[in-house]
C-alpha cells in the first residue's frame, strides 16, 4: 500500500497526471528502483475506486488522452492517518546475506574470505550511493540516500563484528 501513499503525498501538493506522478516520485527516491507506469496506473485505479483520488480533468490535444488526478478529502484523511502511524520496526527476515554468512561459518569454509569479499561489495555499493548523494543538492533526496547508506553501514558493521567473532573463535579453543 505504501507506493500508493507516497503517490497520495505527491497529489497532496497539487493535481497531476500519471506521467508527472511517476517522475516526481522517482525524483523523491533516488537510488531506489524506478516505478513502472503500470504500477502507477494500477495504484491510481485502485485509489479512485476507494474514493481517495478523483479525476480532475481529461485533456485530449491531438495526442493520447491525459487524465489529471486530484486528492479527495477522504484521500487526505487516509494520508494523514498513514503519516500518523509509526512503521513497525522489523522483524528483519534472514536474507541471503545472513543465510550465506551463517552457512559459511557453520561449515568453517573460508568464512573470513567470504566476509572480506562481501565487505568490498558493500563498500562499493556505499561509494556509489555517496557519489549519487554528492551530485544532488535536494535535501529530501539526500535523506533518501542516507537511508540506503545507513542500511549498508549497518550491514557492514554486522559483517565486521561477524569477522571479529570468527577471528576470536579461531584464536580461542572452544
Amino acid at each position: 500500500m505504501s507506493v500508493a501513499h507516497a503517490l497520495l503525498g505527491v497529489l497532496a501538493e497539487g493535481a497531476a497526471h500519471g506521467y508527472d506522478l511517476k517522475r516526481v516520485h522517482d525524483e523523491r527516491f533516488p537510488g531506489a528502483k524506478p516505478l513502472a507506469f503500470g504500477q502507477v496506473y494500477a495504484a491510481l485505479a485502485r485509489m479512485e475506486k476507494d474514493g481517495l483520488v478523483e479525476v480532475a480533468e481529461t485533456l485530449r490535444d491531438g495526442g493520447p488522452e491525459r487524465t489529471t488526478y486530484a486528492i479527495t478529502p477522504l484521500g487526505r484523511d487516509e494520508l494523514d492517518t498513514w503519516l500518523a502511524t509509526a512503521e513497525r520496526a522489523g522483524p528483519y527476515p534472514a536474507d541471503d546475506l545472513v543465510r550465506k554468512t551463517v552457512t559459511a561459518l557453520r561449515l568453517g569454509a573460508d568464512a573470513g574470505g567470504f566476509l572480506a569479499r562481501q565487505r568490498a561489495v558493500h563498500l562499493a555499493a556505499m561509494k556509489h550511493q555517496l557519489q549519487l548523494q554528492d551530485s544532488t543538492t535536494d535535501t529530501a533526496a539526500r535523506i533518501v540516500i542516507d537511508h540506503t547508506v545507513s542500511h549498508l553501514d549497518a550491514e557492514l558493521r554486522w559483517l565486521e563484528s561477524a569477522a571479529a567473532r570468527v577471528a576470536e573463535a579461531g584464536r580461542a579453543p572452544v
Binding site: H122, L123, A124, K127, V149, D153, R157
Partner: peptide, 23 residues
C-alpha cells in the same frame, strides 16, 4: 566510519597489528 572507507580509493584492514586484507 564506513562512509569514509567507502569514499577512499582503497581500503586496508588491520587486525592485531598486521594487514588483514586490502584491495
Amino acid at each position: 566510519d564506513n562512509r569514509v572507507a567507502a569514499r577512499a580509493d582503497r581500503e586496508v584492514v588491520l587486525r592485531d597489528g598486521s594487514v588483514a586484507s586490502g584491495q
